[in-house]
Amino acid sequence: MNSWINLTALWKIVVVGLLAGAGLPALFAIGLRALSPARIAGSEQTQGGQSSGINPVGVTAAAVCFAVVLAAIGWGIYSIVSHS
């Protein structure tokens, strides 16, 4: 094809851009959604209509999502600082 376009580097840039640009905010949103209390039909609810219990599986999933996002941020800062 064209000798001035490096297609290998181009697809790597696109993949990393999609993961960091759309993947990390989506993962953060999944973590926030996991923290929200689940509404189960027939469950005990408070006056505001929210269920009163905390879902430990949701908290664990949210913690994993937030840890991955924080690790990606830390890796990005480390790679910027170490290359300067």
Results as ranks from 00 to 15, higher is better:
T60V: 09
V64W: 00
G42E: 15
N55A: 07
V69G: 01
G42Q: 14
T46C: 09
A72V: 08
T46H: 08
V57M: 07
A61M: 08
R33G: 13
I54S: 08
S43Y: 10
S43A: 15
A41I: 15
N55E: 13
L70I: 13
I40N: 09
I73Q: 03
S51W: 04
S52L: 06
T46I: 10
V64R: 00
Q45P: 04
A38V: 11
I73N: 03
G48C: 07
V64I: 15
L35Q: 13
A41G: 12
G49T: 05
S36N: 11
I40T: 13
G53Q: 09
I40G: 05
V69D: 00
P37Y: 02
A41M: 15
L35I: 12
L70Q: 04
A63G: 09
Q45V: 14
A71V: 12
G31T: 04
T46K: 10
I30C: 13
L32I: 07
G42S: 12
V59T: 05
F66Y: 14
P37L: 06
T46L: 13
I73R: 06
C65G: 05
G49M: 08
G74V: 06
V59W: 06
P37F: 03
Q45S: 12
G74E: 06
F66L: 12
P37K: 11
S51F: 02
A29T: 08
G58W: 02
G58Q: 03
V69K: 01
C65T: 05
S51Q: 07
A34C: 14
V64C: 01
L35P: 03
S52E: 05
Q50P: 00
T46V: 10
A61I: 10
G74N: 05
Q47L: 14
G31A: 04
A34R: 15
G48V: 09
C65Q: 04
V69F: 06
P37Q: 11
I73F: 11
F66Q: 04
P56A: 01
F66T: 08
V69C: 14
A38I: 10
L70E: 01
S52Q: 05
C65W: 01
A29G: 10
S52H: 02
A61C: 04
A67W: 00
L32P: 01
R39F: 13
G58I: 06
G49P: 03
S51Y: 04
G48T: 10
E44Y: 11
L32T: 12
G58P: 02
A38Y: 03
I40A: 11
G48E: 13
L32V: 11
G58S: 04
A41Q: 15
G58N: 05
C65Y: 02
T46N: 14
V68R: 01
Q50N: 04
P37H: 08
A61H: 00
G49H: 07
I30G: 08
A29K: 12
L35V: 13
V64P: 01
V57K: 04
V59Q: 08
A38L: 13
R39S: 11
N55F: 05
S51R: 03
A71F: 09
I30F: 12
S43W: 13
N55W: 05
G42F: 14
G42V: 13
G58E: 02
P37G: 08
G49Q: 06
T60D: 05
A34H: 10
S36F: 09
T46Q: 10
Q50D: 08
A63L: 12
Q45K: 15
A61S: 06
V68W: 03
E44P: 12
V57P: 01
G58V: 05
A67D: 01
Q47S: 12
S52W: 02
F66S: 07
E44C: 10
V68E: 00
V69I: 14
